[in-house]
């Protein structure tokens, strides 16, 4: 327990088991990004998985959305303390995209249009834990929220769910991404409050 602030009550909004420590609920959808919002045309858009041997698998926009999609409803948790429960998405599971990819890699470095990167263990992209999504709440994903498509990895802090996703490089070693280089946690589990390096 911290230093008690006399008279501080807090707002005691619904907490319950769905809210990780240090998070508060929000109904709106704040935006956090480090630079301008990239505008990506759907004719130029592609998604590329690159393995540790340099082999590449590519999907155009039309090829991607010809794949079977799922409609996950998930809770999302931002490192700046807000959480949003029960968000609705539509996208392709990474299990589908990684199916048949021949790799011995343990790590993934996700990269985006605009130059953003973030890293996570490859296992965290498997087993129904991650999607490339292009719809939010039944509509096209707005550019400021990562459209035309973003990664969705809701069990980690939301900076891991790279906006404007362009591809994933698989590797045998862990390579820190944009915020991870700037002092944020390498893994980012909200339930263990892994916000910053050393947490």
């Amino acid at each position: 327990m911290g230093i008690v602030s006399p008279g501080f009550q807090g707002r005691r909004r619904p907490t319950g088991p769905n809210l990780p420590p240090g998070q508060y609920l929000t109904e709106d959808f704040p935006v956090l990004s480090a630079g301008p919002t990239p505008r990506v045309s759907l004719t130029d858009w592609e998604f590329v998985i690159t393995t540790e041997t340099g082999a590449e698998l590519r999907w155009s926009w039309d090829e991607m959305w010809a794949l079977p999609t799922e409609t996950p409803t998930v809770d999302i948790h931002c490192v700046t303390h807000w959480s949003k429960l029960g968000t609705n998405w539509q996208g392709v599971s990474l299990d589908t995209l990684l199916d048949g990819v021949d790799t011995a890699a343990d790590y993934a470095l996700v990269h985006s249009y605009g130059g953003y990167t973030t890293n996570l263990p490859l296992d965290d992209l498997r087993d129904g834990q991650a999607w490339v999504v292009h719809q939010y709440d039944g509509a096209d994903l707005p550019a400021e929220h990562g459209g035309p498509a973003r990664l969705l990895v809701p069990h980690l802090y939301f900076w891991k769910s790279a906006k404007w996703v362009r591809g994933i490089r698989l590797g045998l070693t862990d390579e820190p991404g944009f915020w991870e280089t700037a002092g944020y946690h390498d893994y980012g589990d909200p339930w263990r409050e892994q916000r910053y390096q050393g947490d």
């Binding site: 929000t26 709106d28 704040p30 935006v31 956090l32 990004s33 480090a34 630079g35 301008p36 919002t37 990239p38 700046t80 303390h81 807000w82 605009g114 130059g115």
Partner: peptide, 22 residues
């Protein structure tokens, strides 16, 4: 930031911090 990009600034030279009511 959209205007700065349109005015020819390199996106990497535009650093942003966005906030909503928190």
């Amino acid at each position: 930031s959209d205007i700065l990009v349109a005015l020819g600034h390199e996106p990497r030279r535009i650093k942003t911090e966005r906030f909503g009511p928190t």
